[in-house]
Nucleic acid binder design. Structure first.
Lengths: 192, 192
DNA sequence: ACCTGAACACCGTTCAAGT
DNA sequence: ACCTGAACACCGTTCAAGT
């Protein structure tokens, strides 16, 4: 018999987000999700074509909460710093999401999102090619860091030498920004 | 009946490396490996306790081919650059290996290997804490980049704007080195 | 000592059937 | 239109049994 309240895409994605936040993206299976929704695994397939699409919907939902990447009045470096930090804050809630995005084409970003990123670095002074490389560099590092952090959930939070996740992220963001500052200076020097 | 030539750990790891190189680490399953060795899946369990141990043996085999991280006569920046490039050259042969290491404690490095890395950055002038952060930063980026590259195998090798894997890696290594140079300068300035 | 074979608990998914 | 149930091809792994 049909459910009292019919299943919706929205309910599916909500439950998927809940599981991904609690058990990580690796803990999200069609069968676990179905159990959470009190439904047969195959019921989900009526609303979502396959698991890949489901995960994409989860990714979209998280991405929609991102603050846009724009250059504020305090310059591109401060803007980039804010963006990377807020991106880490959002994505680190879902263990395994960074690792997943790292394995997606274009780091799981939409064409629109990539264009915004490239435009940001062009506005900062990079060439189009340099902007594309800069965006990829910053995003690759951040998602890599998120992958590492995913396995630190629940384990001893203090690592060797008493360095915590937030310390690694803070250092990483500083180093990424400093590295890109130098790359921008070098590119400008080379192009006259 | 027993095999003509009894199975050995070495034969198992060799076959595993072959599969990981051909089909990626995701293509390496106990059953596929057993078929490659012309043996029952459970035969492997007599020589290796479980899959995690098997993958660790694969990781060790690849890591053993790494050139050691030492400061040459041309300074720490050139040495780091060489190391990162050779690390990428080695690890990129095994798609999925970078992604796997990113999810391992301490990025899949042995205590000995970490100590060598930290010692390298201390010799470059970093504090012990800074050296640990610097090592983690460089390694996280490199493995992140390897994760991205893994999915580019077989796809159109030329990406948007005609930027190739090696361009991303070259830019990334430059940016990592430049970023760490700045972090080192800032740390020295702060500590007098 | 070394390996096989059956079995269990998972996974994503197809396909036919029910209401 | 919306969902169920059985089934298939995978996965890692346990356990008892064979030689």
């Amino acid at each position: 018999m049909p459910r009292a309240v019919p299943l919706t895409r929205y309910a599916i994605v909500s439950a998927a987000l809940k599981i991904a936040e609690r058990d990580g993206l690796d803990g999200l299976s069609m069968r676990v999700l179905a159990a959470e929704l009190d439904v047969t695994p195959m019921a989900i397939y009526y609303h979502v074509p396959d698991k890949e699409s489901l995960v994409n919907l989860v990714v979209d939902a998280v991405h929609d909460r991102q603050v846009p990447l724009e250059i504020g009045t305090d310059g591109w470096e401060a803007s980039l710093r804010r963006r990377l930090q807020s991106q880490w804050d959002e994505l680190s809630r879902y263990p395994g999401l960074g690792a997943h995005l790292l394995n997606q084409p274009d780091l799981g970003a939409t064409p629109h999102s990539i264009e915004a990123g490239v435009a940001f670095f062009e506005a900062a002074g990079f060439s189009r090619r340099g902007a594309r490389l800069a965006w990829s560099f910053a995003t690759t590092y951040l998602h890599g860091r998120l992958s590492v952090d995913a396995r630190l959930r629940g384990s001893r939070s203090a690592k060797a030498a008493g360095i915590r996740s937030k310390d690694y992220v803070a250092f990483g963001i500083d180093a990424v920004v400093a590295g890109l500052r130098t790359m921008l200076r070098d590119e400008r020097a080379a192009n006259g």
